[in-house]
Nucleic acid binder design. Structure first.
Lengths: 682, 682
DNA sequence: TTGTCTCCCGCAGGGAGACAA
DNA sequence: TTGTCTCCCTGCGGGAGACAA
């Protein structure tokens, strides 16, 4: 059975159509995945809409919908942008594995002319933002815990974090000798799960015992997957899961051979466009690729206010460890995405420099900058970006999830969220230089949710925090720094790197390098770089990387490596053989940062390799390679080898991607309150 | 993983093309099922051919490929007959449930003209039959056991019939105190299964114990499913399963809505025909419908020598109980299949009378005749026919399986078999009247395998007999009666009724009714007819019909029925209220026969209802209704009600069939040695 | 505070003889 | 000869405290 939240969505649409006062150019982003034609996902589409269209479900759905990585565009025969009207949006969940996906029904529209666009935009800009004034949103409580080995073991149940249990679960009478109760929670399919909840163990803790293992095995949960509990206003408990990056289980794997996949999948779209009939687009957040649907308003804004060289941006991100870091950047170059594949595409490939600041480290401030191309991006006025940390590989997923409520009633605006995968590709800032920031704020309330907020919600989803949606959304933009304020509304920067790049630029307003890569090799301590992950010439597979002992094991292994194989170690151009001091615990943070930063140096510093880097990232994600295994691919070779390695990986990725997804199309989706049109980049 | 026996098939094709001496108009029949377009079965086609193309595999595949019921044609926009060349045949097995299916790659050919056809046929008729002279076939030993409740229970293993174990399993040292050995068998996917085989229990018997339950649960076997063991010349043991009629498990269920299923599925065929490019046809024996592929030679023969009114035929069949019966029949009328749906179809609807003889019964001879229409049938010169007994409903499947080897090297002719489903529809005999029977024998060696032989093989597949393929195939046509001899070569008659018709006509050369239905009600003892299964107005579902106590339970239930509800009992036009004597055990055999014979009387006797009867049968099969429940549908109504019941059932069937299969096409497949062409009836 | 380990104990289920059809 | 039942015994795994990070 699948959840069909159409009903609620229809409500939204009605609101949007008839009562646009509250609706801005909301950031409704949809990414394509799977077959994007009218063929429905074959193994899972029962087509029977579930009767559970409550707000709580919407929230749970969104909470489960954390986008993963992305992929580059593919060129097809369709026109670059296709403007569409959103006819229907179904929030669904695969019955096989509970993964959420969206089916968007689109109706192609006549292309809108330039002047028309401007009119529409100016309409938007005058609208007052009254979202904060109407906090009709209930305050559900949610927590997300990444499952440990103990949680998924056959012995014992699920250990609930104390705050999470107290916040989301019904009150428990602690005066009893063995406090226990029955917990009832519904999953996305409306299936009711009953667990025995106890407060036991020594010391005492909250546990789900009886029937937990049934749930875990039925949902095929493994350590690293995450479980979400969400308590609505009415006290009703919802239950969702979000899987760690792993092979898709039960998702439609349309293996389509190259010779017939393109026409078969795209022809329905082509046909729909030519006949002005509806077609469907599927979006699986967990397997999303670069293709997406762009809000029409954003498209308009980007066309009117293109990003220009010199535009600066700022971002914050979370690391494995607490110290706050910030990152400033400047757009250094703007180029066509791919003039051959996408001759008329509005997407731009933006080269940028970012500046790194590492606080609270060892000797003080260490900085570096690198010039990294980030492709994609209709010239958005508001951009979210986040960074994936290595936690992804250890079962904790770093997400740039923006609250779906964000100051506006989520019942009326259930689609008001941005997918991470979109942020991947979008890097542009035209907000800077604009004098009236509030205009942009008013034009798109979604963008008010800065990265800090998104980051906080992320922590909630990771079980690090418990929050109510209300409190989260109302704290928006208070945590933003100066740069974030400056670019507020449209430039909250959210760069989502694929895990393997491990490029964790740190913000520093003081130190900048505006030009090309200025890579200071003197900052690298070779021995440090070797630490932990840089084992070379070691082809023994490292298992159990997800297990808690992972780092320790690696370190031991690395010690061996240093003793044995240091001679041949090379990190691109940098020989690691000269000196290899034992890393001390104090500089390990910096070590990790630098290691991440420089691992892809040879790639990121070369603008021409931009695409390949991205593809390479995707390969890694797709192939579920572990971090150090990925690095094995890219180190131990000269720069020339790196190039060929990337090309090989890219080819591999393309092949796999084709096989898995059938094809890719990128859609620019508009979901404005009066012009529900899409720009489809096919 | 799927088994791809292409390699062996390719060999065949090569032989066929380059060395046609041994090749006649072989009866390679393929039925369509699932989506018959170029879209491959979505959930299961891994596409990776398995490396196990041995003869043993071919035999196992065929042994597992017992066709079930059929369905009527559907009208589509394609031309009536499409002649195709067989480019490839892949014998595959769904990895989900081990069910076998075939993918036939067809290349449309220019339609062949009339004179051309005759030439080709005369070519065939002159070819000498040398199949018997070259017995290069190895002699594998095979047995098939329908699983009992004990076999599939969680306690204990699999009880192997003694003869089966001695014939197919390696020798066991009975002198040991606890004779045991490890048995290794490969399934259709090449997966190796290891069982502990013991000779234990008290009294001693052959058992598979350790790991049997793993196999059973992994294959999701239930009581009623059948397991096949096949030992090749090399001693290698193969293992296959054939499921009882039940909902398909894991088979591609392409739910295609009516508005787009037809064009989507058929357009590739249409396109392939117009562009003379290849397309694929899938055939799942277990879910086969009426659509099929006809050997070109048969097509030619049928067109040249059409069946004419008065043609007589004979058949033998097996009953639940030993007594041999025979059935003679005469074609009484020939008509178009459906001039509206199939304006130019070569298929003919043949009305016929059959004559029944019941031997060894009570007082001697009891006879009856009925005139039943059997639709379908390009005017084949050789026809196989069998009868489904009620055993099907009790987990024992009655099959009219013709040995694939049949006097010709199976390595070179692995496709030399006829599917039951084809036999369903084909009813015609033009062999009669021909003076030179040997011509037909020579022309098509496959047809030499008479029904008796097929029947014996059937018993093997049901575990009632153990045989070597060699011995089975070389006994062909010795057991045939006079009629079978007369029509030998091309008229081995094989009528496969769907279970619910339960029409078991018995052969009698002495008593015939050449005209329309002459139904002698005086032969019916109403009380007898009520016996056992004729419970009326009883809507309590009868469960566990497959269990051994079934008949006893039914009888008890029937006793109740007779006491309570006899007043309203009506068997079509025959009131059952007059008298209802308690059936004695002596006439129960006849009772059962008559009960079967007359259950569909109101339908079969009306030529206009011919199609509906067939559809009705299909409904029954499709809906997995039990025998008596089916009868509930058809009795207790007047003849008018019967009509509407049938129509309702037909509509239901059509709907279900559409949903399950997407569409249906019928193919006439030719696989002659020089003209590898198909006639496709779309 | 919470992840893992270990120990206890209940029960599912395999294995094989008993019994009967 | 073989299907079913029953009894025995093993091992999986749930449940909860012990212990430690």
């Amino acid at each position: 059975m699948e959840i069909d939240l159409n009903h609620a969505v229809d409500e939204v649409e009605k609101t949007v159509l008839c009562n646009g006062g509250c609706e801005k150019a909301s950031a409704y982003i949809y990414c394509l995945s799977s077959s994007s034609s009218s063929t429905s996902p074959c193994s899972s589409s029962s087509g029977s809409p579930a009767p559970c269209s409550s707000t709580t479900y919407l929230e749970l759905w969104h909470a489960c919908a954390v986008a993963s990585t992305f992929s580059p565009f593919k060129a097809f025969d369709l026109i670059p942008q296709i403007f569409c009207k959103v006819m229907n949006v179904q929030l669904l969940a695969y019955k096989e594995n509970d993964e959420v996906y969206t089916q968007v029904t689109l109706l192609p529209q006549r292309e809108l002319g330039g002047p028309n666009l401007e009119d529409k935009q100016s309409d938007k800009l005058g609208v007052e933002d009254d979202a904060d004034g109407q906090p009709s949103k209930p305050t559900p409580h949610v927590f997300c815990k990444t499952l440990t080995a103990s949680d998924t073991s056959t012995h014992g149940g699920f250990s609930v974090p104390r705050r999470a249990a107290e916040d989301c679960f019904p009150r428990l009478d602690y005066k009893q000798t063995r406090p226990s109760q029955e917990l009832v929670a519904k999953d996305l399919h409306g299936v009711e799960w009953r667990f025995r909840r106890i407060y036991g163990g020594q010391p005492r803790r909250h546990l789900l015992t009886t029937r937990w293992s049934i749930f875990a095995s039925q949902k095929n949960l493994i350590a690293g997957d995450a479980v979400l509990f969400l308590r609505g206003e009415d006290g009703e408990l919802r239950l969702g899961i979000r899987r760690a990056v792993q092979p898709r289980n039960g998702l439609p794997d349309l293996v389509i051979s190259e010779q017939n996949s393109y026409p078969n999948v795209l022809s329905p779209v082509t046909n729909a466009v030519s006949t002005k009939t509806m077609f469907h687009v599927f979006y699986s957040p967990r397997v999303s690729h670069a293709e997406f649907v762009i809000p029409f308003q954003k498209y308009v804004k980007s066309v009117i206010n293109p990003v220009c060289t010199g535009t600066r941006f700022k971002m914050r991100f979370e690391m494995d460890d607490p110290p706050e870091r910030r990152c400033n950047g400047v757009v250094t170059e703007i180029r066509d995405l791919d003039p051959y594949k996408w001759p008329n595409s509005k997407w731009r490939c933006l080269m940028h420099s970012i500046f790194i600041e590492v606080k609270k480290l060892q000797t003080g401030l260490q900085t570096a900058a690198l010039n990294s191309p980030i492709t994609g991006g209709v010239e958005f006025l508001d951009i979210e970006e986040s960074v994936r940390s290595s936690k992804v590989l250890q079962g904790l997923e770093n997400v740039g999830f923006v609250s779906p409520v964000n100051g506006c009633n989520s019942v009326n605006r259930p689609l008001n969220f941005e997918m991470q995968s979109m942020a991947h590709q979008s890097l542009a800032s035209t907000g800077i230089g604009k004098s009236n920031h509030s205009e942009f704020r008013k034009a798109d309330p979604t963008s008010y949710t800065g990265f800090a907020e998104s980051n906080r919600f992320l922590k909630v989803l990771q079980g690090q925090e418990i929050c109510s949606w209300r409190s989260l959304t109302h704290k928006a933009d208070r945590n933003l720094g100066v740069w974030a304020k400056t670019n507020l509304g449209n430039t909250s920067f959210n760069m989502n790197q694929a895990p393997n790049t491990n490029c964790y630029p740190l913000a520093s307003e003081g130190l900048r390098n505006m030009g090309n890569v200025s890579f200071d090799a003197s900052l690298i301590k070779p021995g440090v770089i070797v630490d932990g992950l840089w084992k070379l010439n070691d082809h023994k597979p490292i298992h159990n990387i997800n297990r808690p002992g992972f780092k320790r094991n690696l370190r031991n292994q690395q010690d061996d490596c240093c003793k044995e194989n240091v001679t041949g170690c090379k990190l691109f151009r940098f020989s690691l053989t000269a000196e290899s001091p034992t890393p001390n615990s104090q500089n390990s943070d910096l070590t990790t940062e630098l290691e991440r930063l420089f691992s892809m140096e040879g790639l990121l510093s070369d603008p021409d390799k931009g695409w390949r880097v991205l593809e390479f990232c995707e390969v890694v994600s797709k192939m579920h390679l572990y971090r150090q295994e990925v690095k094995k691919m890219s180190i131990g070779m000269g720069s020339d080898d790196t190039q060929s390695c990337l090309e090989e990986a890219a080819v591999k990725w393309k092949h796999q991607s084709l096989a898995q997804l059938g094809c890719q199309i990128a859609l620019h989706l508009s979901y404005g309150y009066e012009d529900q049109c899409f720009a489809i980049e096919s």
